[in-house]
């Protein structure tokens, strides 16, 4: 089942949260929904779930509007906000209410709580859960109905490193089983390690809809870190190819204006050994911010010129 977002616009009063957004989320891969805070990710996800109604455009899941689905948890599982729980209820009770509404057996609730690692606290009040535990509870809720579409809004928040790894594996497994998986984040570094495909938005508009690999490779403003035993020789070769090279204190070179692939190719041609070749995460993040900011400014300017509001 696909998620199809077609030319969707959403305003809250004067503010435009999402504007002319079109994309399709395909099954069988993890799709990252990437954008800085306030770019409209949560709004889009709420509209996919039929919670907010678009002012314009249409959204379909497997060809149906969400609000027309009966017992939708068998088709779509979602976690929007892990803190949206009643603190006085237990983890079991929270999930059991959802299970009842969707005709899911209580035994499934217990099994899932066990599987997300909350078995020992299932009968405790959710108010005492850490944010990471609430994320796990929310993820269990999303999985309750064994759905073929899954959607998570910033699920990494509050998870410890072990939890992050667990979530990454889970997302990959779900996609490998042929499910449609959409995960939002405001951090490219996070998505670059999990998502196969990226949908990037800035101020409610689509900026990129591309494979993660291509998106990162295209981030040509990003730096590449190179460690090579003959750094001086390599630097000369790279500079000759138009790169800016900076020697860093730790014996590595920081290269801008060349992709990692190009650097590897040049080193190979020159017969120079490489010990390390990687995009600089921090600069990748900067490039992503730059990209979304630029896109926003360009469009704002264009909109002003054409009188569009």
């Amino acid at each position: 089942m696909k998620i199809e977002v077609a030319d969707v616009t959403k305003r809250y009063g004067e503010a435009v949260a999402v504007s002319g957004l079109t994309f399709t989320v395909e099954p069988g891969r993890v799709t990252g929904f990437l954008g800085p805070n306030g770019s409209g990710k949560s709004t889009t996800m709420r509209m996919i779930l039929g919670l907010d109604t678009p002012d314009r455009g249409d959204i379909a899941i497997g060809g149906h509007r969400y609000r027309g689905l009966v017992r939708p948890m068998h088709q779509v599982g979602a976690l929007l906000d892990a803190t949206a729980v009643h603190p006085a209820r237990t983890g079991t009770a929270h999930l059991r209410a959802l299970a009842c509404a969707n005709g899911i057996a209580p035994s499934r609730v217990d099994a899932l709580l066990e599987q997300v690692g909350l078995g020992s606290v299932a009968r405790r009040r959710v108010g005492g859960y850490s944010l990471g535990m609430k994320q796990r509870l929310g993820i269990a809720g999303a999985l309750l109905g064994d759905p073929s579409v899954l959607m998570f809004d910033e699920p990494v928040n509050g998870l410890d490193p072990e939890g992050v790894r667990w979530l990454r594996d889970l997302l990959r497994d779900l996609a490998a089983e042929g499910r449609t998986v959409l995960v939002s984040s405001h951090l490219l570094s996070e998505m670059s390690q999990t998502a196969d495909h990226l949908i990037v938005i800035g101020r409610g508009r689509l900026i990129a809809d591309t494979s993660t690999q291509d998106f990162i490779a295209d981030g040509s403003a990003a730096r590449v870190i190179v460690r090579a035993p003959y750094g001086g020789d390599l630097a000369r070769v790279l500079i000759a190819d138009g790169a800016a090279v900076e020697a860093r204190g730790d014996g590595t070179l920081a290269v801008t204006d060349l992709t990692a692939a190009r650097i590897g190719h040049l080193a190979h041609e020159a017969g120079l050994e490489l010990h390390e070749l990687r995009p600089d995460q921090a600069s990748l993040e900067e490039a992503f911010m730059q990209l979304t900011a630029d896109a926003v400014e360009h469009r704002a300017l264009a909109a002003e010129l054409t009188g569009e509001r």
Partner: peptide, 30 residues
């Protein structure tokens, strides 16, 4: 993570609404 669950392809309106009532009962009792 996802072992098979009883999928309800079709559900009658009475059973469906009963599910909603159970959900609300669970919430209130909990």
């Amino acid at each position: 993570m996802l072992t098979a669950t009883a999928r309800l392809a079709t559900v009658g309106p009475a059973a469906w609404f009963k599910g909603l009532i159970s959900a609300e009962t669970v919430k209130l009792r909990a």
